[in-house]
Design a binder for these strands. Structure first.
Lengths: 159, 159
DNA sequence: GCTGACGTACTCGGATAACGTTTGTCCGAGTCCGATAGG
DNA sequence: CCTATCGGACTCGGACAAACGTTATCCGAGTACGTCAGC
């Protein structure tokens, strides 16, 4: 069970966009983080479709946050990249084989699936409780220079 | 982020083994649950290497639980199949690119990784709190006939 | 009748292919900015 | 000097390959049981 690499990229980019405050091209975000430009653009498209960022075409265009960073949770970013399908998918094994459970007996969800769903809910609860702004604030506390440096670098007109 | 199919199989098999009480061949478990026999054997090998089940060779052999079902948590089964590597792996993006953070600045873990680790810990805590015996007990409460039926079917000598 | 060795059949175990998802890349459609020419 | 038009360059967006991991399968090594011959 490995989470997509794009989630880490997307979260870093959300922080970068929060510090920039204005549209930033995908290529510039890629350069800042030393990532493949084309593929990063694909991940940002996922964020755009989920309504977390808005894309601006043409010169001076790029991506910017669609909402204040306080209103974007980490869970939303994860779901935008990974899709919201739960990690565990019950295939109803109890209904298969020679001793298959009758449909009537399956009125309640499979107990195994219930446990997995509880764990998944706890996981999502933790991620939903943290916003992009929370992470940005933590970084700002420990290393105040980083936000201004990145923000300035992103806003500088390209050579 | 999709969990391996084998986790579901392994958990069902652990329940089956708990009800059987004696070694059961992988082929019989596969027949009971209508699963590919060869591949199921591979998953059981993972459980054996993790020390959750013990394999018995020869006639009347098979797999049986290595410990009482009360002492086998769902988390252990998941880790045995999936490997214990966390879903999110920080690649230290902050250390890359033109504004790479200095090694000194990276004394604390990346804030993004911290959030992910907290969520992962909550997930693991939920899974660690439930044992195979707990699930078996729940099934036994709702459908008392199932454990005896499966246990008897597994113990019957093959035709 | 008891004991020992042997043969057989059954079990797991690791090495070997096919599929699907993720990762990575490219080029085309659309859009805004700036320059330029005219009034 | 102001304004409308045009050209260009920059942006995202979706279509197109490669690589990895998961899924699936097979055959060989090892082992315990049942049988049989000998004592």
């Amino acid at each position: 069970m490995r989470m997509s690499q794009g989630v880490e990229w997307a979260l870093h980019c959300c922080l970068n966009l929060a510090w920039a405050g204005e549209p930033v091209p995908a290529a510039r975000l890629a350069e800042l983080n030393d990532l493949p430009p084309a593929y990063l653009g694909k991940q940002l498209q996922h964020l755009a479709r989920a309504g977390l960022v808005v894309s601006v075409s043409g010169p001076r265009g790029g991506f910017r946050l669609a909402r204040p960073a306080e209103e974007i949770s980490v869970l939303e970013v994860v779901d935008a990249i990974e899709g919201a399908t739960p990690a565990f998918q019950c295939t109803e094994i109890r209904r298969r084989g020679p001793l298959a459970a009758s449909p009537k007996a399956c009125r309640t969800a499979c107990q195994i699936a219930q446990v997995m769903d509880r764990a998944d809910a706890a996981w999502r609860r933790e991620l939903a409780a943290v916003s992009v702004a929370d992470i940005a604030a933590e970084v700002g506390e420990q290393l105040p220079a980083v936000p201004v440096a990145i923000g300035g670098w992103l806003r500088q007109p390209r050579a």
